[in-house]
Amino acid sequence: MKPVPFDYVLPETLDELLEVLALGNNAKILAGGQSLVPMLNMRLARPDMLISLRRIPGLEGIEDEGQSLRVGAMVVQERFRRAVSGREGFDALSVGMEHIGHPQTRSTGTVAGSIAHADPSSELPLLLQVYRGSATIMGPSGLRNVEARDLFLFPYTTLIEPQEVVVSTSWPKPLRGTGSAFMEISRRRGDFALVAVACQIRINGERCLEDGVLGAAGVAGTPISVELPSHFKGQTLSEDVAQYWIQSLDPLLDPPNDLEASSGLRRHLVHQLGYQTVVEAERRAGGNKR
């Protein structure tokens, strides 16, 4: 349970970091390390080089940009959780982040690291999709912004190229009248999600649906999400509407079958949790109390 030997590099600027990444020698970027170091310890990861982000300035901030919150690559999960808890419309995010590991790992694990790691059952990639967020990625040709729905390709694989690095993630602030909810089932507290579901819904003054995103993790190779079908806009949330919306996730489901849960159980849980989550999100938006 010790890592293999690796070169350790401590760049002082983003330019130096890109310079080292450009060498292309099986390097891994170390941010908080709460996913990477276990993989190193178990020797599932055997990088030739580890590049630590801790000396690079400007990656520590949580900035309010008006329309959204920009979270630097080295912001730890617990700090972001405290920053958003109690903020209007961010219920799913603050509740969802309570499900990431334990307080003892959230104190060290970073928001951007979890997203770049792209574990299909982890909470932050799902939440970034449901909040319609994006990742800002820096590479040899400069900065680019990738929407969360385009970012994740396969388990542990994203659009981020080996010579690139995530410098921040952006979390749009939900508009007025938005409610959100998050639910998760796991075998043990803090363990990987069997299924996690998140939803945000916006309603108008007449309690009619205006907008919404529903997503799930742990049930496919990447987090999945669907928009509120356009023909439901202007309707109130009935049971039929909720069920139809949840079933629109079905074509995207490809749940794993493992010792923790069968794929059938995971499908069942998506539907059950999905319904509860949609109803809860609408309730928080100020809709019908049920």
Partner: peptide, 27 residues
């Protein structure tokens, strides 16, 4: 366990509890 599950190695780093098996000393 040396992979962050058991919590036996938890220490305080700048006052916050953290797994000492999931940090490189040099870092």
């Amino acid at each position: 366990c040396e992979h962050g599950v058991c919590g036996a190695c938890t220490v305080l780093i700048d006052g916050e509890p953290a797994r000492s098996c999931l940090r490189l000393a040099v870092d």
